[in-house]
Write a protein that binds this DNA or RNA. Structure first.
Length: 273
DNA sequence: GTATGTACCTGCGGGC
DNA sequence: TGCCCGCAGGTACATA
């Protein structure tokens, strides 16, 4: 599933592949991918536009156009971006958006579950005002977790998944961050000590930096591969996610998998408290 | 304001 | 072999 490291990997590759290029043609198929406005708004905005830069807020990817408009992309559960070096290569099944550039290259949006979304926005991105500070580019001071988690009785796991508190973490990386912090997923947010919040902040930064460096996590279902169709490698550094019944790398206890708040959670009962 | 549950959707694996 | 069912999960929205 694409979370912050996977979206950031797409962004960095797109920065090299499409910035400065002019869009030649856009094709949208199906009715779900562009649903905040008519598909024509996207095709009309992009056709003839030059890509000025790429950006990212949490799991939202942004193409900034020289026309001072922006195209926001969210991959949700199963969305993938693919770069094709020429327009005569075959389309993958479940391709919903094709952006063709004047040099005959193309970027395709492939999304079997059709939860992913594209829309046209203004440069100040009002649709993203509600989300919290970015978990990668902002600092622990910006996150201010002590303030944001104070008086919150919900589990620390559900609070870290809440994009309004901190933007970018999903199920995989929250489990990894909590393992690295030595904190159980079902602890109420307000119960964490200052020392634990400090460990948590360091773990968020450390896990995300390493995952971006490894170009994200590709699990057995291959729901995420990069823009060239290649897998990431951070799954080889996972300590808990998708490792149920295997020994903990820290204490040799057995990793457990439970349902928490409707999500699968992986943790070590021996060294997470 | 906060917490919890549900819908959205398709592919896959397990059970029969 | 084929069918059915449950599960996977990010976000928005409804409800308590």
């Amino acid at each position: 599933m694409p979370e912050l490291p996977e979206v950031e990997t797409y962004r960095r590759d797109l920065e090299k592949l499409v910035v400065g290029k002019t869009v030649d043609a856009v094709a949208v198929s199906g009715h779900r991918t562009v649903r905040r406005h008519a598909p024509d708004v996207l095709t009309d905005t992009l056709t003839g536009a030059r890509i000025a830069s790429t950006n990212r807020r949490g799991k939202f990817l942004v193409l900034e156009l020289e026309s001072k408009k922006a195209v926001v992309i969210h991959l949700r559960m199963s969305g993938q971006l693919r770069w094709l070096g020429s327009s005569d290569q075959p389309k993958l099944k479940h391709t919903h958006v094709v952006v063709g550039f004047s040099d005959d290259t193309e970027v395709h949006f492939v999304d079997p579950r059709t939860f992913g979304e594209w829309w046209v926005s203004s440069p100040d991105l009002p649709e993203l005002w509600h989300i919290g500070p970015d978990a990668l580019v902002s600092s622990a001071q910006d996150w201010n977790l002590a303030e944001r988690l104070a008086r919150r009785k919900a589990s620390i796991k559900s609070l870290l998944l809440n994009q309004q508190i901190i933007a970018g973490l999903g199920n995989i990386y929250v489990d990894e961050v909590l393992w690295r912090s030595g904190i159980r997923a079902d602890r109420p947010g307000a119960d964490l000590s200052a020392k634990e919040l400090d460990r948590l902040s360091r773990a968020i930064s450390g896990v995300l930096a390493a995952a971006v460096e490894a170009r994200g996590s590709t699990l057995a279902d291959r729901q995420y591969v990069d823009i060239f169709g290649e897998p990431g490698s951070y799954q080889n550094q996972h300590h808990v996610y998708a490792r149920a019944a295997e020994p903990c790398h820290r204490c040799a206890g057995i990793i457990e998998r439970v349902r928490l708040g409707g999500r699968s959670s992986h943790f070590c009962p021996g060294c997470q408290h």
